[in-house]
Design a protein around this nucleic acid. Structure first.
Lengths: 344, 344
DNA sequence: TTCTGGCACTCGTGTGTTCAGAGTGCCAAG
DNA sequence: CTTGGCACTCTGAACACACGAGTGCCAGAA
């Protein structure tokens, strides 16, 4: 293991931690003297200066110009997040407030809307919440209703509360008994299953019907499969864009590409898509694939109605953000949304 | 009519027009000399200065500081829009592009999404499009389907393509014949009617059924009326927020309240609600009821599938905007969306 | 070996001054 | 009513300058 990466002793790490904390607080480059004053490191500024030099050598911090204080680099934040910081749990009153705020929701749309606003308010950053997606959720019920001799309406109800409907044009007249039979068989197999698994489970269904009815059955199933596969419904809700104004001093330059990114659902979806399935994901600065977000950090996490995550949510803020606090808020909100979804 | 408002002669109006045009173009206060050079007014700078003094006296223009050029006031823009400017029609290629872009839409959501993006792009400002609202649109068809002995699904299809569905729990078993009868009668009366008018037209319906069926009929109708009345579905779509960065030099101050306003659907709805039913509405600066938008102008207009407007759309930009061009774009887009809706 | 105090050096920021240019208002003459 | 001339005002850019924060390095102490 002895190699490229020189070992950083504990004090250097403490110095880095202190730099990150101070910089996040003040938004100004932090110098050795101020550091010693605000954190009791038990050593002199000169010593800290030596450590800083080492940290800079390793690329964890950086000087805007000679005779200025130090600023953490992306790499520095990364180390901070991985090794030096702990997720800050929400206080009891905060938890109560979250719970209370989300409890008032009346339907899925409302849950998502409340969640995104809450998250933006808690973190004072831009919040992003993905709607519980089709591909992850499960079937609660599938309904078939004859509207006209050759027209059937297909209604797909998911465990997340989402409802999708399609009109099916059948090749011939559909008998009510056949329809009832089909409805029963579909639900028996599909109910409770995850959406992507459903087509496989229904594959052999047409064979169970009389030859005359098979075209109809196949048509209905084809529409159902289409509906299941349609992922373009992966919507995303945004809030807190006004918080962008607190991003940085060098304004329009930072904010413009971010606003552009936020308008592109595709970008946001991809962004959340990169979130690990388990645990929280933090992408810092240039770690973000999308260029416009190179000066921002994204904290995201999956949430779900059970133990499984059905969608993602997160916040986007300046790399100089309060990581422990943000992560705490994101985690707490995700947890509570999960509970709300499970209850309903 | 001789009174408070002193008459402005033609040349003064020409000067005002020139000032607005130049200021919109350059974003810098415009002085007498530059004015004479760029527009051939046929008089000397000194004369223009006199006119400017008069215009300032009347409150149409204003000087940031002594020895600076003049800037139009809200009142100046107002006069410009009302009397001095003509809506600039789109060029043929532009019209083709609009048409082409909107023609690709596959459903109502897509139409709205495309419209808002198009509008943002054409005007390089923030675009807002309201979904065709329930209260203005008309009924295309109402469908009733028995799902279970005492459960009926109510489907409301509107001329805008929007579909709403509700599950109705009936007080007793519902006979298929009664349901068919009810369906027929409802559609005979309601089809083609505006949503708010429908309840009045169906009032006497229960009386036409046998006493035993009346509770069911009433329940179904009650649900239908609820659905019709529900206006919270008045959604709004936004695009072009990145254009906010081009708003002004004094950045965060202007942009923050605007971003806050844009997040509030309620504010936007009220904003569009103030649009006159016929013709285009232009609200300049402080004419906007919402405080955060006091330094912006809103150009909005109704659009609809027929001759009647079913919803509004518009753009939000700095008071210093190209009014003729913006109004042209807004009008053209509204017109084409109307056509698209009428066709589908 | 590691820490510390001292010291010289760098450089950004804030302040004050100057200067040119743009623009005005006013006035007297056309 | 228009015009040219003129004195005046004010902003913004350019420059000089001093201050102070912060650094790096070195020699001596622990």
């Amino acid at each position: 293991m002895a190699g490229e990466v020189r070992q950083l002793d504990d004090r250097k790490l403490a110095v880095l931690r202190a730099i990150v904390q101070d910089y996040v607080g003040t938004e100004e480059p932090v110098g050795s003297k101020a550091l010693v004053e605000r954190h009791n490191l038990g050593v002199s500024p000169a010593t800290v200066r030596n450590d800083m030099a080492a940290l800079e050598e390793e690329g964890y911090i950086h000087q805007p110009h000679t005779s200025a204080g130090r600023i953490p680099t992306d790499k520095g934040y990364r180390l901070f997040v991985d090794k030096l910081a702990e997720v800050k749990p929400m206080s009891a009153p905060e938890r109560r407030a979250i719970r209370h705020f989300l409890d008032g929701a009346v339907d899925l749309d409302d849950v998502v809307a409340r969640t995104v606003r809450l998250l933006a308010q808690l973190t004072r950053q831009v919040a992003v919440v993905q709607y519980p997606s089709l591909s992850r959720s499960t079937v609660r019920h599938i309904e078939l209703v004859a509207l006209a001799p050759a027209k059937v309406m297909l209604v797909l109800i998911m465990n997340t509360g989402r409802v999708e409907q399609r009109l099916v044009d059948c090749p011939g007249t559909v008998g009510e008994t056949v329809l009832a039979d089909l409805r029963g068989r579909i639900n028996a197999r599909a109910a409770g299953q995850r959406l992507p698994d459903v087509p496989g489970l229904l594959e052999e269904l047409p064979a169970q019907f009389e030859a005359a009815d098979r075209p109809t059955v196949s048509t209905v199933l084809a529409t159902l499969f289409e509906t299941l596969a349609e992922q373009r419904e992966e919507r995303i809700m945004l809030a807190g864009t006004a918080n962008l104004t607190r991003f940085g001093h060098d304004f329009p330059l930072t904010i413009q590409p971010v606003l552009e990114a936020l308008e592109e659902q595709v970008v946001l979806l991809r962004l959340l898509g990169e979130t690990a399935d388990a645990g929280m994901t933090v992408r810092i600065g240039r770690e973000n694939a999308y260029e416009g977000l190179n000066s921002t950090s994204v904290v995201s996490v999956g949430y779900g109605s059970g133990d499984e995550s059905v969608a993602k949510l997160g916040v986007i803020g300046p790399t100089r953000m309060d990581y422990p606090g943000t992560m705490g808020a994101v985690r707490a909100v995700a947890r509570y949304v999960g509970q709300i979804l499970a209850e309903s």
